[in-house]
């Protein structure tokens, strides 16, 4: 069991799910009946990436709370790695969203609530790194980063809600309450891609976190040897 969830195994699981999801999305799920047609296939990547990005920020939020409670720097490292990956995925959301937008709405950019929210999310979490870079003292940097990660994560749903206040209807609402709006084969392919992407995030966070902890250990050992 332990081997099945080790770091390399997680990568393998993620890869397997993502490849199967890709194959199913293109060969099993039908071409979308609406005007979006074939371009809807990008949805099997776009939406899981978006979900994964938010999961990354969620992990960072949890790590920030843990850090503020325990003052243990290992949680700061987890938060740092999660925000880094969340931001990477958020940037990918922007790119895949723009490609989809161009093919289905005919424009590269539309001020649509979800896309706008992700743009702001990118700015927010870019600021997280600016904040980290201007505080020298280790413990204080971790504290400020944690406080900001908490505020930023709370702000994300509020931003999404606010951008919806302005009436807009461009984004294809694929999930509606009580009705998934998708055929079974589409839904299954989508879920497999989603699980694959989430596993990829888990593997990357785990890997990155281990590297950060090793770096800390090296620094500690160096100071012991040098001092």
């Amino acid at each position: 069991m332990k081997k099945l969830v080790s770091a390399p195994a997680l990568f393998l699981w993620a890869g397997a799910f993502l490849i199967v999801g890709l194959l199913l999305a293109f060969w099993w799920a039908p071409v979308d009946a609406s005007a979006m047609g074939f371009s809807q296939k990008i949805f099997y990547y776009h939406a899981p990436i978006a979900e994964t990005s938010l999961v990354g920020f969620g992990v960072a939020f949890a790590a920030a709370v843990m850090y503020l409670r325990t003052q243990d720097l290992k949680w700061d490292r987890l938060g740092y790695v999660s925000v880094r990956l969340g931001l990477l995925f958020a940037v990918l959301v922007m790119f895949t969203g723009m490609i989809w937008g161009k093919s289905s709405w005919g424009v590269w950019w539309a001020w649509e609530p979800r896309l706008t929210t992700f743009l702001l999310v990118c700015f927010l979490y870019a600021a997280y790194f600016v904040l980290r870079s201007v505080v020298e003292e280790e413990q204080r940097r971790a504290t400020y980063a944690a406080v900001f990660a908490v505020i930023a994560f709370i702000d994300v749903p509020i931003t999404w809600f606010a951008t919806r206040l302005i009436p807009e209807g461009l984004h294809p609402v694929v999930f509606k309450a009580g009705d998934t709006g998708m055929e079974g084969s589409m839904f299954a392919s989508f879920m497999i891609s989603m699980i694959g992407m989430t596993l990829l995030l888990a593997a990357l966070i785990r890997h990155g976190w281990q590297i950060e902890l090793l770096k800390d250990r090296v620094t500690d050992l160096k100071s012991i040897l040098g001092g």
Partner: peptide, 18 residues
């Protein structure tokens, strides 16, 4: 922080958007 007033708009503006 080291950069003081340079940092505030970067932190503040994206959060205040809603």
């Amino acid at each position: 922080t080291r950069s003081r007033d340079l940092l505030l708009p970067i932190l503040f503006l994206p959060l205040i958007v809603p």
